[in-house]
Design a protein around this nucleic acid. Structure first.
Lengths: 337, 337
DNA sequence: GATGTTCTCTTGACCGGTACAGTACGCCTC
DNA sequence: GAGGCGTACTGTACCGGTCAAGAGAACATC
């Protein structure tokens, strides 16, 4: 059986191909009656609808937005926060009639998704700004929105108030009376600045410096929960261990709590722990985690909003979403010792 | 500035457009010397590479595979197991030079991704086999692979030995000496049979029936952890409560453990709990969860393998991956009471 | 009754590539 | 030196749509 195209339907009905195209894509351009007949004929011939690839070429839009993530996606998905972000992005896109295409990083592979996959715009989620993939995207002149990290000139931005949130976390410990405070965070390599890690560090330091407290910092390369656990151990397994710890994320906080417990310390009695992100697990963990809440779904929606504006030729305002402290049961006043 | 196409490069170098195309897509078709010159000219003109949309139309392949998930993606992503599956799919695809496009379900939306998005094949992950989206995909004649659920004739399948794994879980409790056994599982609506839920139920029943044990079943609509928690509560908050429980998933098991603890029951001393999936959280939870292990990354790879075979015109064998029991600390012999 | 207007449908060009069947030429073979 | 063959490049016909401008008829306007 020959392939069914607009032309075969047109021949069948006795109209021009363009009219058939309009029947599908611009119903207001023809009479309702004729449209009915065309759709009937199309159905009869087994036509499914305009071919997406052909339409993409003709229209200059593919109807899907890319998401670039550095490293393997496994890492990204295993984190509750990124998973929630992805979900909200995808949901927001679909209400606008677009799909989400995941662009794997091209590291050590001949296939360069950023060059070879058809998309109308790209969200940069956890990306090294110096990555060659971003360079490809720039050459393609694709609209880009950077989430949670500073991109380059010409790249729109959506992020959260990491610094302010971190400040709240540290101030919370200070207000409770803690003075020996530890920080368990992600190592920020100088060349590939992890924006949230840097900003959160600044926020903690803001608050601690204002109170004249000198924190003990342990930082780890990205590989929670194992690495965070080890880092936390090294922080806690010493005589002058902190009474309170602020952590880069909830995942880091959970690792820290496990490390504390393995040393026989109870949270929060012996150690107060503050997370960051307020992931779905934070409320139901034991003890329920005091953490900094960020609006992940709103972040996804804002990113989609921004990319849509760019695709329409407008220039979106940079977005910075608020963070708030959520006090649960993993923090309390230090016991005098 | 005019758009750079193969033609403009061809004019510049003084060769035919086809030769330029070959320089990019089939390097063996021209001399290395000329190819160099063409690439240099392309670079100079700011050419990025063959336009993906045009190439997709001409070649008849888009280079991306769709993933259809029923319901909002939020649900899918929040589950550690599906997230891991997605990650492995995406990684496996990228090594084959393909990207993954997420196709949101069309429920209550005018936009039908299954009809309008350009993909070369589709993975059906957690899909109602009767969904209209699948009907669209069938009309488009796209290769399809169903994961974890029975599709229809013509749809390849990849799943795990749910039934066998469930049997192992139940036999484990029986071997430990449990005789009052509960089941906390997902409700399977008759019309949209959830394949894993049904198969696992069969597996539990296989083992329990063979031992002459009549389980107490509580099933819940899909909305863990809250619904699973409530279901588990109703199971445990009675005088003749079970001493051991098998659960649909690790998430259900965690909910069950929380429910038990809220009633003052200790796991495993007062209640043994077995999960399913062996998600990343199972080993590090407290207590570490006895559960049924399934090879999620292998499942992703197998699905990609199958879709690739279909795209090559071959017919893949149905795949069934093994499951194994992983005994940790959430189960023990029942205390006589 | 000449002059808009609106509604419907058609015409022709174009989107930016790739497939396939040549053609031209150099080299080897006997 | 005719025939055969491999290499390097070209010509033409698609792939299956959409856009923008135009043509013809029906209806309204003055």
């Amino acid at each position: 059986m020959a392939k069914v195209t607009l032309q075969s339907i047109a021949d069948r009905v006795g109209v021009s191909r363009m009219t058939v195209s309009n029947a599908f894509s611009r119903p207001d351009q023809l009479s309702a009656d004729l449209r009915e007949r065309i759709l009937a004929a199309a159905d009869e011939l087994g036509y499914v609808g305009p071919d997406p690839a052909a339409r993409a070429l003709a229209r200059g839009r593919t109807g899907s937005v890319g998401l670039l993530i550095n490293g393997t996606l496994s890492e990204a998905f295993e984190d509750a926060v990124s998973a929630a972000f992805l979900a909200s992005v995808s949901d927001a896109l679909s209400t606008r009639g677009m799909a989400l295409t995941l662009l794997p990083s091209s590291a050590d592979q001949p296939f360069v998704a950023a060059r070879d996959v058809a998309v109308d715009g790209v969200l940069l989620y956890i990306c090294d700004p110096t990555s060659p993939d971003i360079a490809w995207l720039e050459r393609r002149n694709l609209p880009m929105v950077a989430i949670d990290h500073v991109g380059r000139p010409g790249i729109a931005e959506v992020h959260v108030d990491d610094r302010g949130g971190a400040r709240l976390a540290a101030e919370h410990l200070l207000t409770l009376g803690h003075r020996r405070i530890g920080i368990v965070t992600l190592e920020t390599k100088p060349e590939s600045q992890n924006y949230p890690a840097r900003e959160r560090m600044l926020g903690w330091q803001d608050a601690l410096a204002a109170a004249g407290v000198d924190p003990v910092v342990v930082a780890t390369a990205y590989q929670p929960p194992r690495a965070a656990y080890d880092a936390a151990l090294s922080l806690l397994d010493r005589p002058d261990r902190p009474t309170g710890v602020v952590c880069f994320s909830d995942a880091f906080a959970f690792a820290t709590i496990r490390a504390a417990e393995s040393l026989g310390l109870r949270v929060p009695q012996d150690l107060s722990v503050v997370g960051f992100d307020d992931s779905v697990l934070a409320a139901s963990s034991r003890p329920p985690l005091t953490t900094v809440h960020q609006e992940v779904p709103a972040k996804g929606r804002a990113a989609v909003e921004a990319i849509a504006e760019l695709m329409d030729g407008r220039q979106p305002e940079p977005v910075m979403l608020p963070t708030t402290l959520v006090v649960r049961e993993s923090t309390t006043a230090p016991t005098s010792r």
